[in-house]
């Protein structure tokens, strides 16, 4: 199989991912409706985007810290961003804005499917960027192992993730179409994606801290936060 790996393909697929994700979001909002008014929805979206920017950068640099060390100037240098940091940063920022606004309504359901689609498209760009992008897997002797340019056949973890996201997207789409508790679709997406990354990152040759890389530790923290959230909701429901 002839694959042309080139780092320039990464931003092209990233732009397509953002654009298609936004189109899917608009379609979903039209289809399912939205209890938030336009301006308020944009406020949530802006909080998510800015939080994603900060979270993605901070976790991306923390992941590489065992190799590069921590320097504040690295925050302004190219490279070093991660989807998990983006998701967690966006989630935290939206919760902060909602706390500031005094609302407890769940606002994430409409973002779940677009995130699935956008990440899947972006991951194709990660794959095509080859060795320049640090998202490839460990060496493997399996027949579908891919040589990203260093002469070693590796797990194409980006393609595994695309397959996972296609399945998850279909599941979320079916789930969203049925009656469900508000916020459930987003929490399902977060739990599934963080669980996936916690597992699949064992196949990536990233620097480890205490047996896992920084992204896996962040996934674990996110899953624990989701678990606590679910428990507190159940306890509230029992009290009512």
């Amino acid at each position: 199989m002839l694959v042309v790996f080139h780092p320039e393909l990464h931003p092209i697929f990233e732009v397509i991912g953002y654009s298609v994700g936004f189109a899917v979001y608009r379609r979903g909002r039209k289809q399912h409706g939205d209890f938030l008014a336009d301006e308020r929805r944009w406020m949530v979206t802006a909080a998510a985007a800015v939080g994603a920017l900060v979270g993605s950068r901070v976790l991306g640099l923390l992941e590489q810290m065992p190799q590069t060390g921590w320097q504040w100037i690295n925050l302004l240098k190219p490279g070093g961003k991660t989807i998990v940091g983006g998701l967690l940063g966006g989630w935290i920022a939206v919760e902060l804005v909602k706390w500031f606004a005094g609302t407890t309504k769940r606002t994430g359901d409409l973002f779940a499917l677009p995130l699935c689609v956008g990440i899947a498209i972006g991951r194709i760009g990660c794959f095509l960027a080859g060795m320049a992008d640090d998202t490839y897997g460990r060496a493997t002797t399996l027949v579908w192992g891919v040589d990203f340019g260093d002469g070693v056949r590796r797990h194409p973890t980006q393609i595994y993730e695309v397959g996972f996201l296609v399945g998850l997207g279909w599941l979320l789409w079916s789930y969203h179409a049925r009656p469900h508790r508000n916020g459930r679709v987003f929490r399902l997406f977060m739990a599934a994606y963080l669980g996936w990354r916690l597992a699949i990152d064992f196949l990536k040759p990233q620097p480890l801290i205490g047996g896992m890389n920084a992204i896996q530790w962040a996934c674990l923290a996110g899953l624990i936060a989701l678990g606590f959230g679910e428990l507190s909701r159940k306890q509230e429901a029992l009290r009512v």
Binding site: L53, G60, G80, D133, Q206
Partner: peptide, 14 residues
């Protein structure tokens, strides 16, 4: 800005 940072996870792009 996310786009401007370039590659995923490639802290070593620097």
């Amino acid at each position: 800005m996310l786009l401007g940072f370039g590659l995923c996870g490639a802290g070593l792009a620097t």
